[in-house]
Amino acid sequence: MSATEPSLFEPYRLGAMTLANRIVMAPLTRNRAAEGFVPGPLAVDYYTQRAGAGLIITEASQISQQGQGYQDTPGIYTDAQVEGWKKVTDAVHAKGGHMVIQLWHVGRVSHTMLQPGGGAPVAPSAIRAQTKTYVNDGFAETSEPRALERAEIAGIVADYARAAANAIRAGFDGVELHGANGYLIDQFLRDGANQRTDDYGGSIENRSRFLLEAMDAVIAEIGAERTGLRLSPVSPANGLADSNPQALFNHVMEELEKRHPLYVHVVEGATGGPRDVAPDFSFAALRARFTGPWMVNNGYDLELATRVIAAGEADLVAFGKPFIANPDLVERLRRGAPLNEMDRDTLYGGGAKGYVDYPLLADAAA
């Protein structure tokens, strides 16, 4: 690598933060929140162990009870949740790390057991998600959603802004709106889920409206320099599809370029699956429309991450599953050391096992 090529392991200036490296811990749902959907002491340990990442993006955290889609996921809408997260951010900052919280509304990917008053989940249109959610310690089919009334949408946009303000109170360095993986923002964007006939449906401009209103509300609350966004333009996650994703996400990027967010975080391909799920889709065309910090995710290993950073094709690389089993992932990658195997049986729910007990390199050496 020449002296002029950027390195995965060199510091990177992101907004007001100087990240120790360009390796990001991607958001990872672990279903271990305590009563009241508050992150507990184990979450403090879990994130502090991983503070060697240049940036940590938390597990997705719902902006309201209505926004919840899985059992035991943390929120950021009550004072108790803010206090729980404050313990996490204080501990991560004490280790020299940086941290943003992912703001989540699942939309139709939910179950009546999780909704206020046992009501139906909400969505752009009353189209059921062909996927499962996690309730009662197991996977179950999602419930039939109801279409949001137009008058309700502004309240959800306001929930994003309130959650962002709570995040700053909790000590986060910023937020990431979850616009990916088939959840509410993604449902509004894609015509496979959005069949509205008002000004939030139909044209690409209309389907982008909810995302851009949520971004604008959060930016007005905490500033563009603390507001990131995650998108998954071609992922079929949670049963989503669009008839023309290139045109849709080209437009989204052109609109984001006007707003100067902290970063755009793009899932390339199918979330947690093949990268070549849409071979005709051009991620380069998206990058060409957005001049801000560009974060990539999905199936990255050391070789691929090193190459895209050196080539200037991305500024940051987010690693997901490798961080579950390797709290010291950055050091392992730096040394070319072997990675721990992930225990799939402990991914969702439970306690310390498979959460905070994966060995560090130092432990393995001893």
Rank of each mutant, 00 (worst) to 15 (best):
G228S: 07
R196L: 12
V44F: 07
E205W: 08
M215C: 03
I324F: 00
H265P: 08
F37I: 15
L231I: 15
F249N: 03
T18P: 01
A20I: 13
A151W: 11
D345S: 12
F210Y: 14
S243K: 04
R32D: 09
Y12I: 12
N238L: 13
I309Q: 01
N326P: 01
S110A: 14
R13W: 02
E221R: 03
Q246A: 15
P236M: 15
L184C: 04
L114M: 06
D159W: 14
T346Y: 04
V308W: 05
Q246M: 15
S208N: 06
M17G: 08
P327F: 10
A337S: 00
D315F: 06
H93G: 03
P41Q: 10
A237V: 06
R108W: 02
R30G: 00
T29Q: 06
F249I: 13
G349E: 09
G69H: 03
T29S: 11
I153C: 10
E59H: 08
G107H: 02
S7C: 03
P39N: 09
G155L: 15
S64R: 06
L231G: 01
A140M: 09
P322Y: 02
A33I: 13
I222G: 01
R190W: 06
W104T: 12
G15N: 06
V44H: 04
K353N: 09
E257F: 13
E35L: 15
K95I: 05
A154N: 12
L286K: 01
D216A: 15
R275T: 15
I63C: 02
G312V: 13
T197N: 06
F37Y: 12
G67H: 02
V122D: 07
